Simulated assay, not measured.
Amino acid sequence: MNTHKQNTHLLASKKLIGSVVSIGNDCATVKLTILEEMIVDTYNLSHGSFVFGLADYAAMVAVNKPTVVLGKATTKFLKPVVLNDEVTAIATITEISGKKISISVGVKNQKDELVFEGEFVCFVLEKHILDN
């Protein structure tokens, strides 16, 4: 897999939504370790927003355009994620239609079990969404 220069989400928190492992042609891989502050109960269950954030970030990096934004996501949480799990998101662009880009993302844990899957619809805007 080629590793391209990252062009989007450059200030994203590695601690909260992951570290980019690689950026290829129409794909990206991002890893996240589940930390104590992500835990919601005495069973050490992680809040789902962190896995969602990881998957969303991977989708954005797969598109790799500075003005990419998320429009829609359809997701499934398949297995619980707990303290100290290392989860890896692999995002692959499945369709491009003008500014609309569809990305499929799978997230696996360190045991190679699929814990999350999602379809993300992103848009590449002419300018930054907050640029008036």
Results as ranks from 00 to 15, higher is better:
31 K>R: 14
31 K>A: 13
32 L>I: 07
32 L>H: 08
34 I>S: 02
34 I>A: 09
34 I>E: 03
35 L>Y: 09
35 L>P: 04
35 L>Q: 15
36 E>C: 07
38 M>D: 11
41 D>N: 14
41 D>A: 05
43 Y>M: 05
44 N>F: 04
45 L>M: 12
45 L>N: 15
45 L>D: 13
46 S>D: 04
47 H>P: 11
48 G>T: 10
48 G>D: 08
49 S>A: 15
50 F>Y: 15
50 F>Q: 11
51 V>M: 02
52 F>W: 04
54 L>N: 07
55 A>F: 01
58 A>I: 05
58 A>L: 03
58 A>P: 09
62 A>K: 00
64 N>S: 03
65 K>F: 09
65 K>H: 10
65 K>T: 09
66 P>I: 08
66 P>G: 12
69 V>R: 02
69 V>Y: 01
70 L>F: 04
70 L>W: 01
70 L>D: 13
71 G>P: 02
71 G>H: 01
75 T>H: 01
76 K>W: 05
77 F>W: 04
78 L>R: 00
78 L>V: 07
80 P>M: 04
81 V>D: 11
81 V>C: 14
81 V>S: 14
83 L>T: 08
83 L>F: 10
85 D>I: 08
85 D>P: 10
87 V>M: 14
88 T>P: 01
89 A>N: 07
89 A>L: 01
90 I>L: 13
90 I>K: 11
91 A>H: 03
93 I>A: 04
93 I>Y: 01
94 T>P: 04
94 T>M: 02
95 E>R: 07
95 E>N: 15
95 E>A: 13
96 I>L: 05
97 S>R: 06
98 G>L: 08
98 G>H: 01
99 K>E: 14
100 K>D: 08
101 I>P: 00
103 I>C: 12
103 I>S: 07
104 S>R: 12
106 G>Q: 09
107 V>R: 07
107 V>G: 15
107 V>T: 13
107 V>S: 13
108 K>Y: 13
108 K>H: 13
108 K>R: 12
109 N>V: 09
109 N>P: 11
110 Q>D: 14
111 K>H: 08
112 D>C: 03
113 E>P: 00
114 L>E: 15
114 L>C: 11
116 F>M: 07
116 F>Q: 10
117 E>M: 05
117 E>L: 12
118 G>S: 05
121 V>C: 03
122 C>E: 08
123 F>I: 09
123 F>Y: 14
124 V>R: 04
